[in-house]
């Protein structure tokens, strides 16, 4: 009677997973609804709401905005994080502890508060609300994570390779760009994907710092004022799918990192 002994655990596991997946399943299911309301009874499947979504100009525009902001801000973040990790690991500066604390500090503050601070500052120095402002906001919230991910990969196993490069006549800049960067590629890509996912999903900073051109989460939030519609389900399903895709790619790179470490 093995299963009886395991029954309470299995039951809890099933209930917990159902709780976790209930809203996701409902969201995806009713994006294929063949009616005006994303609620029971389910009459479908139909792709009409996906059609409607891709016919919604403002939504498609915001989708592109989101991709541009996510990719560009993540590129900047990854480069900054990589350089900072290198500087920290190989040219350990004075006050290293303090600098590390400073670089990690934005992690401990709510996005809302960072967004408010940026809104007030940009307002005072005259940077208008724009996607550029949103991108800057996303750089600062993602920088600590990118820095931490890349810094954790600067192990001592790299030192010999770096010394070899230097013995063969490479200067520091050449070593950094032509030896270290290629070796670090998996963790650079992993931190890029992580940063894209977080930027793609970010709402409050995008909401506070944008005006006419907005990102997808802001549009979805605006659409919610109209109440429940399967179109929001369709948009939500798409956002979810793209998040999963980026996370999946990121996780694969993480595994590559983990394997290379062994």
């Amino acid at each position: 009677m093995n299963w009886l002994r395991h029954f309470p655990s299995t039951a809890y596991l099933v209930i917990a997973l159902s709780f976790i997946y209930l809203p996701v399943v409902v969201l995806v299911l009713f994006s294929f609804q063949d009616g005006a309301l994303p609620v029971f009874p389910f009459t479908g499947p139909s792709l009409q709401w996906y059609e409607k979504m891709f016919g919604n100009e403002r939504l498609v525009e915001s989708l592109l905005n989101s991709i541009v902001v996510a990719v560009l801000s993540s590129l900047v973040t990854t480069v900054l994080g990589f350089l900072a990790a290198y500087g920290m690991a190989r040219r350990t500066p004075r006050f290293a502890g303090g600098i590390r604390f400073l670089l990690m500090a934005p992690l401990t503050v709510s996005y809302l508060i960072i967004g408010m601070g940026l809104l007030i500052t940009f307002n005072l120095i005259g940077i208008p609300k724009s996607l550029f402002a949103v991108g800057l906001g996303h750089v600062i919230i993602n920088l600590p994570l990118c820095f931490a991910v890349i810094y954790s990969q600067f192990g001592d196993h790299l030192r010999n390779i770096e010394w070899a490069a230097r013995d063969l006549g490479a200067n520091d800049t050449q070593t950094l760009l032509r030896v270290i960067a290629p070796i670090m590629k998996p963790s650079l890509l992993a931190s890029f994907c992580l940063s894209v996912t977080l930027s793609w999903d970010e709402f409050i900073i995008a909401f506070l710092l944008s005006r006419f051109d907005v990102t997808l989460p802001v549009i979805i939030f605006e659409m919610l004022r109209a109440g429940l519609t399967p179109e929001v389900n369709a948009a939500g399903t798409m956002v979810f799918a793209i998040s999963m895709l980026t996370i999946g790619v990121g996780v694969i790179f993480m595994f590559v990192v983990a394997r290379e470490k062994k």
């Binding site: 970010e202 989460p217 979805i220 919610l224 929001v232 389900n233 996370i247």
Partner: peptide
Amino acid sequence: PFWTAYVVRSYSWLL
């Protein structure tokens, strides 16, 4: 689902 779009996650509970 931790990574489900943040705005959408709340909305899906409304459903």
